[in-house]
Amino acid sequence: MLSIKNLHASVEGKEILKGINLEIKAGEVHAIMGPNGSGKSTLSQVLAGNEAFEVTEGEITLNGENLLELETEERAREGIFLAFQYPVEIPGVSNLQFLRTSVNAMRQHKGQDEMNAAEFMKLAKEISKQVDLDPAFLKRGVNEGFSGGEKKRNEIMQALLLQPKLAILDETDSGLDIDALKVVSDGVNALRAEDRAILMVTHYQRLLNHIVPDYVHVLAGGKIIKSGGRELALELEERGYGWLGLKDEETADSSATSSAN
């Protein structure tokens, strides 16, 4: 489904991703782990087409289609969804209006009829319950005054609503208490499907107790330095990133680490 080859990307002239290779097939769940600053969010944003990042080399295809030629909104309509690490507020725009505009943009792209307000309300209420968000949240401004946990649940709700082909979840587990973690994980597990791929970005392995990945990759210094199965995450938890010759606060431009590859 998703194929990333030798991907290099930079921001403000600084190279962050230094040759990423990754293949994800439909139905698979991949976890990307790595120290802070290693480029996990950058990878997520580049996949979604954030223009703040410049792709300098390499290719990304989704089902054979060159993603780099598509605008952000076109990629979204092709089925790429990003759950943000830091969801931004849009004051005064109700969640409901925002979500309906989004769903209808996707439907229009597929040649389907728009959903009217009543139909949409019904659907949105059902899904908000699935992530344990009070339907009253639908009336509030997008992320306006939401707590960290509420923002994350709101992101998962959107994924469930939009039913993407590829869901990229950027640290959807961070800042959640045990109960919220359970709700969010249940939501992500509900997303798992034969025809859908999930790319989970996380700093901690605890999420992986709830959502068992098919593959785990370690990203450091802008490169994937190790890949393995579920057991790699457990090993990381036990031995820390130090085991791979990494300090936890490793940043992308400290090249000392790349020898581990």
Partner: peptide, 26 residues
């Protein structure tokens, strides 16, 4: 903000529609 625009566009919304939605909210 660029972040607001990126969020809207990531959800499939046209840039022009996104601006008008954000302004209406304001």
């Amino acid at each position: 903000s660029d972040e607001q625009m990126f969020l809207c566009r990531q959800r499939g919304i046209d840039p022009e529609q996104a601006v008008s939605m954000i302004v209406n909210g304001f």
